[in-house]
Design a protein around this nucleic acid. Sequence first.
DNA 1: TTTATTTGTTAGATTAATCTAACTTAGTAT
DNA 2: ATACTAAGTTAGATTAATCTAACAAATAAA
Lengths: 216, 216
Amino acid sequence: MNSLVEENYLKAIFLLSNSEGEVSVNELSKHLDIKMPTVTSMVKKLSEKQLVNYQKYKPVKLTIKGKGEAAQIIRKHRLTEMFLVEVMGFGWEEVHDIAEQIEHVNSPLFFSKMDEILEYPNYDPHGSPIPDSDGNIPGKQYRQLSQYKAGDTVTFMAVAKSSDAFLKYLNSKELSLETKLTILEVEPFDGTMKVSYENRPSETLSKVVCDKLLVI
Amino acid sequence: MNSLVEENYLKAIFLLSNSEGEVSVNELSKHLDIKMPTVTSMVKKLSEKQLVNYQKYKPVKLTIKGKGEAAQIIRKHRLTEMFLVEVMGFGWEEVHDIAEQIEHVNSPLFFSKMDEILEYPNYDPHGSPIPDSDGNIPGKQYRQLSQYKAGDTVTFMAVAKSSDAFLKYLNSKELSLETKLTILEVEPFDGTMKVSYENRPSETLSKVVCDKLLVI
DNA sequence: TTTATTTGTTAGATTAATCTAACTTAGTAT
DNA sequence: ATACTAAGTTAGATTAATCTAACAAATAAA
Ligand SMILES: [Mn+2]
Ligand SMILES: [Mn+2]
Ligand SMILES: [Mn+2]
Ligand SMILES: [Mn+2]
């Protein structure tokens, strides 16, 4: 039904939408690395197809239909990442680019088989929620590690804005999901934290890192 | 490097080539379900890229380079089919269309991981050979069941021109690879065979079916 | 409230892959 | 040998997705 290109736009709109569900043409352009005029014309096309609401000079918003189709692609992406890690033995830093391609495979059976083999997972290897087949997302709200204070003990649940480089950094610190962290001290000047976990008595994490660690 | 479309042309040229390694524009057109003028222009493009040799009004032939790239795509296709059957539990009649899409995934690591998990298979679920990473094909030459005579005992090794419908027919007859078949009689008029195998004392197979069963 | 900057749109060009219609070449049959 | 048919090519149009250049609107700064 939708082309691979359209699917990537829908997914980007979904993932970049703010709390009101809106995203600007400019932001889409930056994240997709596609020039603004191209984005404008594509958004018009999606609007024709009733997948987004669009008015000149206003930010874009997915329709119910558009949100559902975006969720399906995100579901396929995250199921794939989980499959690559759990069944095929990839590291969590290796799977995104492969999933970016396989998410466009047209075969409901293929993804339902993955789902079955994985025993219906709710989260992907980076802790992001996997929408169910109706597009509903199991909504746990995590907070950034950087919002906590010295003495707090939290559990690392998900990675925000995960890049391969950041995931490799976490590997090097042996920091994986479900790890319990105790905050030893917070440097007020720049937000750098000293934390302890597992058999690591004291690790120093920059503010940039603490912002990307989602905990509960 | 090559587009998905170019990859499908290369694969078709490889698979449809005759013993001299040649295939006509007309045949490509029929099998790809793309009109002849389109095929002509695409073949010209592949010729520009040194992937085929082409002269006006002559059949097309892959260059060494083109043959290598075609073999890689076929390798990815067949590895994928094997993975879908052996690891994910699909039936051999369900995997072709999925593999047709996944064969275009750009990730050497993904396919080498499949290869490793499958312990470096040489044949796909339909008995077709999987080219190795250098594009060499393990060349066993099977013959059609229809070429044998009454009294012969053979082993079913591969399916020629397998369609989903034909594979489902084989399922219904409980006829799978490696099965030993004894030819009871051959009807001279139309080539229909009576055969026995496993716990099936006598099954009748039409000439059309016997042509598609490759045995040794 | 002007002015400058950022954001967004319009217009027109480009590339890949397809098509139809018209014409040509090659091969087959009378 | 001539005519017919099948196969192949050329020319020109179409659609999807992209771009650059130029202009317009909205927002932020002075
Ligand atoms: Mn991802
Ligand atoms: Mn994608
Ligand atoms: Mn196949
Ligand atoms: Mn394909």
